[in-house]
Simulated assay, not measured.
Amino acid sequence: MPRTVAVGLAVGAVLVGGALFVAASVGFDSDPAAETDATPAAAGVTLPPVDARFDYQIGQPYAPPSGVTVVSRDREASPAAGVYTICYVNAFQVQPHEVTWWQRNHDDLLLRDADGEYVVDGDWNEILLDISTAAKRTAIADIVNTWIDGCAADGFQAVEPDNIDSYDRSDDLLTLDDAVEYLKLLAPHAHAAGLAIGQKNTTELGTRGRAAGLDFAIAEECGRYDECGDYTTVYGDHVIDIEYTDDAYTTACATVGANVSVVRRDLDVTAPGSPTYVYRAC
């Protein structure tokens, strides 16, 4: 989802309603800084094609614009026909329409503060998942990995686990180390299911995400925040950038648009027909 400001709020309740390409070769031992056009990936998985025309459809699926060959859609949507489709999974936070299910079945896996209140990403009204211990990470991964299996069964080619940086919104209850250890449970499972897996935002990972098994990057607003090089240093040209303002889009196109996918979308990633819909690509 679009990057958010670090916020931790306590709430007692939340509103309830969620073509073939060439596979890359094995390896994580090369110098990331020396990479340019390709990044090694797990055997048997297919990375999104480099510098392809991309569309970000995690808000609502629709027929891809002309020339689009890579799309990201929510895991509850169907893959786009005839194009490489990435499966969006909110792997670190709870979608508002799924809150009741989590509370009824796995309330112990929802992050709470010292007062016993849920810790919430205030921008998106999403409770954070509690990845603070190995046992809880394993329990949550068991659930999220079934979603990843569903992505594979539905015909997606890759998975995008969102909100890796939720530790920044956890009131210091979670750490970057927790996120990395959790990713180590998701990445091998995605690969075993035949899916590539991407790093979503979180430049703080450095090379640790790739070492944990991530294959490419989806960056929101790397042009706006001058972070695009942080991703290309690790993943070469296997980077997709989404910008939400015209100025940042222009910057990203000028700096990295010749080598990586860059799109301009509206903040709510709406569909054509919406008064706020925006889509451009360079």
Rank of each mutant, 00 (worst) to 15 (best):
D142P: 10
D123F: 13
S132L: 08
W147G: 11
I140Q: 02
S132Y: 03
K136G: 07
S132A: 11
L128G: 00
E126W: 11
C151K: 08
E126K: 11
E117S: 14
G122K: 01
C151H: 08
C151L: 09
W124V: 09
N125L: 12
N145S: 00
D123L: 12
K136T: 10
I127F: 12
W124K: 14
A139M: 06
T146I: 09
W124L: 09
N125V: 09
R137P: 04
N125Y: 11
K136I: 10
S132G: 12
T133G: 12
D115F: 15
D130A: 00
C151N: 08
K136V: 10
D121A: 12
T138F: 08
A139I: 07
R137M: 09
I148P: 06
A135Q: 13
L128A: 03
A152I: 10
L128V: 05
S132E: 04
I131P: 01
D149T: 11
A139G: 05
V119G: 04
R137L: 06
G150Y: 06
I131A: 05
C151W: 08
Y118F: 15
A152F: 12
N145V: 03
G150W: 07
D121H: 02
I140S: 07
D130K: 00
I148N: 07
V144R: 05
A135W: 01
W124R: 15
N125F: 12
T146C: 08
T138V: 04
D130I: 02
V119M: 05
W147Q: 14
A134R: 11
I127Q: 13
D121V: 04
Y118N: 03
G116C: 05
I131L: 10
A153C: 01
I143M: 09
R137T: 06
T133F: 06
D121M: 09
I143H: 02
A152G: 13
A139P: 04
N145M: 01
E126A: 14
I131T: 13
G116D: 07
A134K: 05
A141R: 04
I140K: 01
A153K: 13
I127Y: 12
S132K: 03
A134L: 12
S132P: 03
V120S: 00
L128W: 00
G150L: 01
D121I: 08
D149F: 01
T133R: 09
Y118V: 09
D142R: 14
G122A: 15
V119S: 06
V144A: 03
I148G: 02
T146W: 06
G150V: 04
V119C: 05
T146G: 03
G122I: 04
A152H: 10
D115H: 14
W147S: 13
I127H: 07
N125E: 08
A153T: 07
D149I: 05
V119H: 09
D121W: 00
K136N: 07
V119I: 14
I127V: 15
D121S: 11
T138D: 15
L128T: 03
W124I: 06
S132I: 01
A152R: 10
D121Y: 03
Y118I: 11
